[in-house]
Write a protein that binds this DNA or RNA. Structure first.
Lengths: 322, 322
DNA sequence: GACTGTGTGTTAACCGGTTGACACAATTAT
DNA sequence: ATAATTGTGTCAACCGGTTAACACACAGTC
């Protein structure tokens, strides 16, 4: 690997001059600028970014922590985060936490060890929450920690829209498959809304909890509902994947969708349009979520003033399950 | 941020001693080891990894280049890559290339600039292929470049199994929705196999190409087949997502699955089990792919002998579309 | 002729670690 | 008593860049 010294020698110039060219500072004549570029070309020189990072105390790497990237919602989020980070000259490092607090901690410490300039983090175990301080260059997704900026969709409103749609479509008894309600995540606001609207409109309802899991596990939860509450005629699924599992289970019980049972999903991941029937769902603007997450984090890193709460609107996408 | 000097001062020891403790070398008494750890604790010291990287000429970061992480196959691959990389003490940086050669190049140059120790890269534009040299710490997925190690599923065999299944199930005219065949990727071997088997068994067949795209685009391709070849009774979809689009389009044309038309997908991503009907597919062992990719890359980085060709078996997963 | 702006070189310090060489002391083994 | 082992310190060099300070040369301006 050629170093800046090699380039200086090759170009017949001083190291400082080469560095000036590289960093566009001070006075440089066109002729020496050209000499430097030609020498770099000949030696195939690329500045050692590690060394630059050391000096600048900045790696230009952003970290992203998600439960797992293979989950469609998170993979899309990560996708957009990389997109916007790249535009701003940052790379992105990923972490599947698997909700393991040790792994979350391990990655969060990359901030202290200067490997990353900041984190965008989705879902935290309480251990990690304790570790996080408002001064850290970090923003969360769907998690509210005092003093730490976050981004989230307007899940409460999403829950309201979903529940209202079921009720307005004539459902008499509605069910909701939620996430783990003991976790204090903003995503659970959709479940709060479900309850609030149900109570307010005086409609019979049931809730089943399920942690972030697999399709087969979700099916079990759906089966439980169909077994214990055969009269349920509307289901607000906590995610589109859950909705897909409900579609399957409804088939098992010979229920026709949307005639016998109506279903509303959540997220509007690509898959929502791929099932048969296609799922009516609450759309999160994942691209915008990613964009704002990156922008807010970079602002925080640069010490700018930032808004702590970033709540994005959701929208109803009506398809065939209602 | 505390530095190693601060720790040394706090512990009343020399910097070299602290460094010895940190790196487990030379003789260290239990008492000083303890002093160092306590001082680190008090100062909340984390060694600056950038600095270590500089000295060691090693960042312990692996890069992954995929067309886009939001694609289910790649998100699962990335998921497992991160899993195995973490176990080996490496972090992973991601790149969505969007098949843009400039972006691919940009990331590949992180190797020269020492930001990453190596790359696992899926799909390359020809520009990138020209840039790559066998000496680079890089392995490809589904792409064969002379001298560069690669991993891939046994796509030819996958194509054989899929095609045979359709034929053995009684299909008289089969269609295949392939990727871009002008690209010389190993994934296209499934299409070669489709043709070979069709010719060999003397069965009528058609092929439609489609680049890596969206569900809606795939539907158009499927529609083209149903319009131009209404007598097709078996379809080998190039991926599970394509299979899902075929299911939709079959519905549009009033064809019953698997009675009127049988479908075989490819990949066995989670979604294959979520559609109605569930899709029979050729399963790629994505976890193994990720594991071997990481292992091979690390071996290459460490200068060990490695096998250039890593072809993993695929398997047939029969579900409801056949 | 003094002043200002432009262009380049030299030198040294710094970012935050790691390492080898060497010195010296205290134990322990032979 | 001597040698070997263990434990720690000092010092300097190094990884590959960046930067500030200062010196010097040359051009153009007033």
């Amino acid at each position: 690997m050629a170093t800046i010294k090699d380039v200086a020698k090759e170009a017949g110039l001083a190291v400082a001059t080469v560095s000036r060219v590289l960093n566009n500072r001070g006075y440089i004549s066109d002729s020496t600028r050209k000499k430097v570029y030609e020498a770099m070309e000949r030696l195939n020189y690329k500045p050692n970014e590690i060394s630059r990072s050391l000096f600048r105390r900045k790696s230009n790497i952003l970290g992203v922590i998600v439960p797992r990237v293979s989950h469609p919602f998170f993979s899309e989020l990560v996708n957009y985060i990389e997109f916007y980070a790249y535009q701003a000259g940052y790379k992105v490092m990923i972490c599947n936490s698997y909700a393991d607090s040790n792994k979350e901690r391990d990655y969060l410490e990359l901030i202290s060890s200067n490997q990353v300039d900041g984190f965008i983090a989705a879902i935290f175990t309480s251990d990690s929450v304790d570790y996080i301080q408002p001064s850290m260059p970090l923003i969360t997704v769907d998690t509210r920690i005092t003093g730490v900026p976050y981004i989230a969709s307007d899940h409460y409103n999403g829950g309201v829209m979903a529940t209202n749609l079921l009720i307005e479509s004539g459902c008499k008894k509605i069910a909701h498959i939620s996430g783990e309600l003991r976790m204090d995540t903003l995503a659970n606001n959709r479940s709060k809304a479900f309850i609030d609207v149900s109570v307010q409109k005086n409609i019979e309802y049931v809730i089943e909890q399920s942690k972030l899991s697999t399709f087969e596990e979700y099916k079990k939860v759906a089966i439980k509902i169909f077994e214990e509450h055969p009269d349920v005629d509307g289901i607000f699924a906590g995610s589109d994947i859950v909705a897909a599992s409900v579609i399957h289970v409804a088939g098992l019980y010979g229920k026709s969708i949307p005639k016998d049972v109506k279903i509303v999903g959540y997220d509007d991941i690509d898959m929502a349009a791929m099932t048969v029937p296609t799922v009516t769902t609450i759309r999160q603007n994942i691209e915008k979520l990613g964009e704002i997450a990156v922008k807010t984090l970079l602002d925080k890193i640069e010490g700018k003033e930032i808004t702590i709460e970033n709540v994005l609107p959701v929208s109803l996408v009506e398809r065939e399950t209602t």
